[in-house]
Write a protein that binds this DNA or RNA. Structure first.
Length: 490
DNA sequence: GTAGGGTTAG
């Protein structure tokens, strides 16, 4: 009988061990029409290292649909190289042609891998097939440039949209401003806004986006200034405008202002809605005013505004953080009784609460229960549970949860790898460090770039435990990644 | 994917 550790090092790192024989998608002429599900296809792609074999296999399947392609790309989201390989193979399929959405996803993945050459090749190919690029495509590209610190490039790309055959209008202008604001570049967005607001005829939505951008940076006075300017230009604030400011005050810790603003909204007979109430329930709750949060929750029903799942989630989170998980679960159950269907966030909030209370086993129970409500654990779910297991020193339990992910429906991301690699240094066992090394190789293989710190830490660990050969492999990997400190020698 | 509420770390 293998120990769990041996078991894991054989199964959790499929790219290091010899891959198992791929299941075939071929069907004989007499068999019923093939209908492989996305998970089966994803596993096949992950296990087939030979590109020709994979191409043959994927081309032999004739029933591709945009939905199926989308589902597979989604599962391969955290394995960028494989996702692009899959996309390219299908792009040469004799009968199947990609949809615009598939191109957008492929472009997003290429951008995340910072493979800008591939990105622009995809844009050109998309255009040659008359599928775009659309404003949505450019929003994706701009967002990726901004989040990798190339905001100037994002601006250039936006300004050159029309050269790629994509119309520039108020919608795409607003979408672009929103990308900048969501990436905490409110000043830059405002500067560009001032230059082009005449040309694009900026509207209430443009102003709301900029005001929200400053609120995200906790600069509520600046946000109010923007809104004042909006009113002076004859545009009328909407309920969304008020909700943005309300949330902004809470976020900035200006509780008095927030509460005063809320009262004023009620007094002025603004038609406050479920978003307003959810903001207040969450806002007063997270500062520890649990009873006030409950009161507002009750008040909204009296005012004829029904709570949404998000409102319940806000209250549940508040109870987890500032009261206790038991009471949070009572509200969760009440939500069920009232006929609401909890969503992924509901579960994530409860699971996090249980983890925080040290109740790992119940947290994992809730993870299993998600299926009942037609949802599946997502990355955040896995990462929270794995992190808390590691913090509790329950390394084996963390690895068990990790192993579930490798099944194919939700691949680990950068955070997952960082959490696990750190955990491998808790016990300082030789096989733990070996596993850390294998995880490091796997994450690079999947398109994630580890920090220099991570490389050095794993290398030192391997050298101390005498794993020379793996250390050598990682060292050459590190130089290929451009993360090698000068004068570092084995 | 033209705007606002609910997840991750204090």
């Amino acid at each position: 009988m293998l120990s769990l550790r041996e078991n894991i090092s054989k199964t959790a790192v499929p790219f290091i061990k010899a891959p198992p024989k791929p299941p075939s998608l071929h069907h004989s002429a007499t068999a019923s029409p093939p209908s492989p599900d996305p998970t089966t296809i994803t596993r096949l792609i992950l296990r087939t290292d030979n590109p020709e074999a994979l191409t043959r296999n994927l081309h032999s399947f004739a029933n591709w649909t945009p939905q199926l392609v989308h589902a597979v790309l989604k599962r391969l989201w955290n394995h960028g190289p494989k996702a692009l390989q899959f996309f390219n193979i299908l792009d040469t399929h004799p009968f199947y042609a990609h949809s615009a959405t598939a191109f957008d996803h492929a472009i997003d993945i290429a951008a995340r891998l910072r493979d800008y050459k591939a990105l622009w090749a995809l844009v050109a190919r998309m255009r040659s097939q008359k599928l775009g690029p659309s404003p949505k495509t450019f929003a994706i590209i701009a967002e990726r440039y901004v989040s990798s610190g190339k905001a100037d490039k994002a601006v250039k790309v936006f300004l050159s949209m029309h050269e790629h055959g994509c119309p520039q209008n108020l919608n795409s202008f607003n979408a672009f401003l929103d990308v900048l604001c969501k990436s905490k570049r409110a000043e830059m967005a405002y500067k560009i806004f001032k230059i082009f607001r005449g040309r694009f005829r900026a509207d209430t939505i443009s102003y709301n986006i900029i005001a929200n951008g400053f609120c995200l940076k906790k600069q509520t006075p600046k946000a109010l200034e923007i809104l004042k300017e909006m009113v002076e230009r004859g545009l009328v604030p909407t309920l969304t405008t008020y909700n943005i400011m309300l949330k902004g005050f809470f976020r900035a810790g200006q509780i008095k202002e927030a509460w005063g603003f809320f009262l004023q909204m009620k007094r002025r007979k603004v038609e406050i809605d479920v978003v307003t109430y959810t903001t207040v329930v969450h806002g007063v709750g997270v500062i520890g005013e649990v009873e006030k949060a409950r009161k507002v929750f009750g008040e909204m029903i009296g005012a004829g505004v029904l709570p949404s799942v998000a409102t319940y989630n806000a209250l549940i989170q508040v109870l987890c953080k500032k009261d206790n998980v038991g009471n949070a679960i009572i509200v969760f159950e009440e939500m069920l009784r009232k006929g609401y269907t909890p969503n992924v966030t509901s579960y994530n909030v409860v699971i996090r609460g249980l983890c925080h209370a040290g109740n790992m086993d119940r947290a994992i129970e809730y993870m299993d229960k998600m299926k009942d409500d037609n949802c599946e654990p997502i990355l955040q779910t896995y990462n929270v549970v794995i992190r808390y297991c590691c913090d509790d020193g329950e390394i084996e339990k963390a690895l068990e949860v990790f192993e579930r992910m490798t099944g194919g429906s939700c691949l680990p991301n950068l955070d997952t790898y960082n959490i696990l690699i750190s955990a491998m240094f808790v016990r300082k066992r030789s096989d733990d460090l070996l596993f850390a090394g294998k995880l490091l190789i796997e994450m690079v293989d999947r398109g994630f770039l580890p920090r220099k710190f991570t490389f050095n830490r794993v290398l030192n660990g391997l050298l101390l435990t005498g794993n020379q050969s793996l250390a050598k492999e990682i060292l050459s990997l590190q130089s290929r990644c451009g993360r090698l400190p000068r004068h570092f020698r084995l």
